[in-house]
Amino acid sequence: MTLNMLLMLDPSHGALLRVLGTIERRGWVVRDMTMRSTDCEERAVRIFAHRKALHAGSAETLMRHLAKLICVREVAQETQTRPVAAATVTALGNRTSSGSQSPYYAIGAV
């Protein structure tokens, strides 16, 4: 089984390592990858991955695990050739906005 994904990442330390580590630990092999920076500091990463034989995890479960990473703003599954989102997974309990203001706290609350 193969999976073609587009991920929008925060420009934070280790973001790429977290994503690649999660993909490999959850039973997938990265076959191809490209990355570019966007205007709003995000990094757009396109990853083509292959599920290891014998491994049970589904593509949807992998995308949910990726969406849980704090550095991941969005994960979308793409068709093979065109960057059209078939299913978009926005981080749940992660981010509510993609602006610079953290969604977790209000500065100066104390």
């Binding site: 330390h13 990473l69 706290y105 500065i107």
Partner: peptide, 28 residues
């Protein structure tokens, strides 16, 4: 870890700590 940070900017200490606590306790 659920998340981790290298706190390399002294100006960010307050924000990073606040965010760390929120992340640790939010959701799962």
């Amino acid at each position: 870890v659920k998340h981790s940070v290298i706190l390399d900017d002294p100006a960010q200490i307050g924000e990073v700590v606040a965010e760390a606590f929120a992340i640790a306790a939010s959701g799962r």
